[in-house]
Design a protein around this nucleic acid. Sequence first.
DNA 1: ACCTGAACACCGTTCAAGT
DNA 2: ACCTGAACACCGTTCAAGT
Lengths: 215, 215
Amino acid sequence: MGRPPRTSRAEIMAAARRLIDRDGWERLTMRRLAAEAGTAPTTLYHHVRDKDDLLTQLLDDYAERMPRPAMPADPRERVIAAATIIRETLAAWPWAVEMLTHDNQVGRSALWMVEMVLASAVECGCSPEQAVDLYRSIWYYTAGEILIRANRGRRQAENTDANPRDDRIRAVDVAELPQLAALADRWADLTSRDTYALGLRSLVDGFLQTLPTPG
Amino acid sequence: MGRPPRTSRAEIMAAARRLIDRDGWERLTMRRLAAEAGTAPTTLYHHVRDKDDLLTQLLDDYAERMPRPAMPADPRERVIAAATIIRETLAAWPWAVEMLTHDNQVGRSALWMVEMVLASAVECGCSPEQAVDLYRSIWYYTAGEILIRANRGRRQAENTDANPRDDRIRAVDVAELPQLAALADRWADLTSRDTYALGLRSLVDGFLQTLPTPG
DNA sequence: ACCTGAACACCGTTCAAGT
DNA sequence: ACCTGAACACCGTTCAAGT
C-alpha cells in the first residue's frame, strides 16, 4: 500500500489551511498538521524544508488568491484603494501579518500591489525614491493596524469577568492625566471603531501635499 | 540555608533583563530564566502567575525607566516629539512591541505619553474623539515601523550567501512590474533608510489639516 | 522514492512533597 | 512560607530503518 507519493504538497497546504481556519493560526504545529493530513510528522519534512518554509508557501498561495479588482482612475485614489485591499486581504487572515513581520517578504504574488502603490505615487508627482517612502509609510501603518486589531479581538475574547484588563485606563489619575481620565468611560468604544481609512487618507494627503503640484 | 525568601521579584526581573540583553528576547524561557536566577523553574511560579504576567511586569518596569524629556511649546511639535520618544524607547527594546501587540495595554507608566499626544492634539484643535483617532493612527504607524524594522535587522543577520532572500525583488518581471524592476537594484538601500520621521509628519500634518484652523 | 518510529533537545505549567 | 523534583502534555527536527 504505497510506492506512489501518497502525500502531496497541495494536500499538506490544504490541511494547513483547514487547521488554521478551524483552530487558529497559533495552533498550527507540525505534529497537528501531520495528524490533519493523515501522515507522520516526519513525513512533512519530505515536502517542506522546515516550518518556516511551510508558512512562506502558505502565504504565497494565499496571496495568489487575492482579488485584483479594478482600480480608480485618479492616482491618489488608487494609492488608497491598493492599500485598502492589502489591509482587507490581510485582516481576513491576520496570522499572515504576523508572518510578514517575521519573514518580511511580501511574496511574489502580492508584488502587483506594491507596484500599484509605487506607480500611482509617481503619477501623483513623486520621485521613485519618494514613492518608496510613501509605500513604506503605508505598509508600516497597515501592518500595525492589522496586528493590533487582530490581537485586540483575541484579547476581547479572553477578557472574562475574572480578569479585566481595562482597569489601568479606568483607574487613571485625574490630576495628572486629565484627557485620559475624561475619556476613560468611552475609551473601549472609541478604540474599537474602524479608523483605518481616516488615518490612511491623512498619511497619503500629508505626504503628497509637500510635493510640487504637477502642471 | 533557606527560610527567608531567597528569590525576590526584583531578582527575577533583573535576571530576565540580563537574559534578554544577552541572548535576545526570543530566548527568554521560564527554564532558562530560572537557571539565570539560580533557582528551579517551578520556583518562579511563586513570584509570577505565568509567563505572560512576567512579561507584563517586565514591560511596566521598562516603561518606568523611559525618559521624560522637555516637550516643545508648539502643540503639533509636541505630538511629533511624544511619538518619536515612544518610537525611540521601543526601538531600543523591540521585543516590547511584540509584547504590546500581544498584550495590548500600554502600561501605566507609559500613559503620560498617551496623555501628551491627546492633550497636544486637543490644543491643535481636535475634539477629544479626533484626538483619540490621531493617537491611534500614530500608534499603528509606530508599532508597524518598529516591528518591521526589528525583524528586518534580525533577517539581515541571517541572510548569508547560502540563502539570499531578495531574489523576489531582483527577479521581477520588467513588463508587468516596471517600477519595481527599475528600483530592484536600489531596493535594499532605499528600504533601509530611516523614514519614520517623514511618515509621522505626513500623518500628523494630513490629519490636522482637515480641521478648522483655530483663531 | 517515499514513509516511518524512536529519539533528541527543548517548551510552560501543575502538584505533591520537602525544609 | 518558601522551595523543589518528578511529571504531564506538548514543541520542531534528525536520522537510521523500513517498504
